[in-house]
């Protein structure tokens, strides 16, 4: 599966469009992590637990989007965009969407 965030897949020709595909996930870290993040907030710096959370969520959102594209019979997703929202305190919502296409 080819994933791009431009209009086309460079070097290839889009022969068929299938419409939009989307993948999303809401994830939370256990309270131990929340507590450590609160402590880290005192001195600043990278919140490793939350970086990990964000990364896991992004990967899962991408995987879900890819699966939708596969179900449609596409072999590439172009013009992918990411969006986040804070539906819940301490939880991250990661959302990926793009256009499923077939390229040659």
């Amino acid at each position: 599966m080819i994933m791009t965030n431009v209009n086309t897949v460079p070097g290839k020709k889009i022969v068929e469009h299938f419409g939009i595909v989307q993948g999303s996930t809401v994830r939370a870290k256990h309270i131990g992590r929340d507590f450590m993040a609160g402590l880290k907030n005192l001195v600043g710096g990278e919140l490793k637990g939350y970086t990990e959370l964000l990364q896991d969520s992004r990967e899962e959102a991408m995987r879900r989007m890819e699966e939708q594209a596969q179900q449609m019979g596409a072999n590439a997703v172009v013009n992918i965009r990411f969006a986040t929202s804070s539906v819940a305190q301490g939880a991250a919502e990661l959302f990926a969407y793009g256009t499923a296409v077939r390229v040659e």
């Binding site: 889009i14 022969v15 068929e16 469009h17 299938f18 419409g19 989307q22 993948g23 999303s24 996930t25 879900r64 699966e67 939708q68 179900q71 449609m72 019979g73 499923a100």
Partner: peptide, 14 residues
């Protein structure tokens, strides 16, 4: 370029 609409049966996001 051609558009083929597809309806997804399975909802992977839930």
């Amino acid at each position: 370029m051609q558009f083929t609409p597809k309806q997804l049966v399975d909802n992977i996001n839930v």
